[in-house]
């Protein structure tokens, strides 16, 4: 069974919420990324979102854009990220890890080869923000035909409306509810005005856990929605924390433990 699905099932049994953090692979370098992943695992993170840097990250705000640019400058490529994944899995790291990436990176690699390689290297899930429901056929075909392939995590937005049910039906692992309009980053004050109703609608439709992301910094930020959601995702704020702490493993552990305890 898939690591993400396993973890989500365990949490459900324990009646606990999931916590997911986002890190750009190779920011500042691959070695640090490995340390950060291991620190996250040790602190009890439920799933790690590993960003594959791309030259044109249209779904990201300035903080993650900058992290991507830096990683690319430092020579980080998809191949090197696969190597890191393989190394982690060979060394017994079992924390669920998914790739957050843009479609061109996978497409250029070749979808068949890409999906096979994900399966080989223990990539558990995929989030591709520029690949909406209507454009997913090609990658779905590969995912369905490859044993051990990652699960495809669907994104829904506050303006998805009538699209919610078909999208949610297809999602595996969990469904990613974007809390605001526009790109990653932002704040509680940027949460969409109909957020509560929209989250409820997704929750009522979904057979997989409902995670909320974008603009979240603390467990406090998602308190008003704790009766609906199954967990929270922190991206931009986590990248800032890494930068501000000079990529300190201790800062990572402290932040994750605190968030998990309060969630």
């Amino acid at each position: 069974m898939n690591r993400i699905e396993n973890r989500m099932a365990e949490l459900k049994k324990l009646n606990k919420k999931a916590f997911i953090t986002y890190t750009t692979a190779g920011f500042p370098d691959i070695k640090k990324t490995k340390e950060i992943i291991l620190a996250q695992e040790e602190a009890g993170i439920d799933v790690i979102e590993l960003g594959v840097p791309f030259s044109d990250p249209v779904a990201d705000g300035p903080v993650i854009q900058n992290a991507s640019v830096e990683a690319i400058k430092n020579g980080v490529t998809l191949e090197k990220i696969f190597d890191l994944m393989k190394e982690l899995r060979d060394e017994g790291c079992e924390v669920p890890i998914l790739f957050m990436m843009y479609y061109n990176t996978a497409y250029h690699y070749g979808l068949e080869a890409f999906v096979k390689k994900c399966a080989e290297c223990g990539v558990d899930g995929l989030i591709i923000p520029d690949l909406p429901y209507e454009e997913q056929d090609e990658i779905m075909e590969q995912l369905e035909n490859t044993p051990g392939a990652p699960v495809f995590i669907e994104l829904v937005s506050p303006v998805s409306k009538q699209r919610i049910s078909k999208i949610v039906k297809r999602s595996r692992g969990f469904v990613y509810c974007v809390s605001q309009m526009g790109v990653t980053g932002g704040d509680v004050k940027d949460f969409h005005k109909n957020l509560r109703d929209y989250l409820s609608e997704v929750k009522n439709t979904s057979s997989v856990p409902v995670m909320m992301g974008f603009g979240i910094k603390t467990a406090e930020d998602v308190k008003p929605f704790e009766d609906i959601i199954d967990g929270a995702i922190v991206g931009t704020h986590f990248i800032k924390l890494l930068e501000e702490s000079n990529f300190s493993a201790d800062a990572v552990k402290e932040y994750i433990k605190k968030f998990k305890a309060e969630l």
Binding site: V58, D130, E134, S157
Partner: peptide, 26 residues
């Protein structure tokens, strides 16, 4: 080639590779 009958495409080119939040806008 299966995009032949999809009016969003010109042969295999075109499509709508945007974030979910823009799909209803498009």
């Amino acid at each position: 080639m299966r995009k032949e009958n999809d009016n969003r495409y010109y042969g295999e080119f075109g499509g709508q590779f945007v974030s979910e939040s823009l799909m209803n806008t498009l």
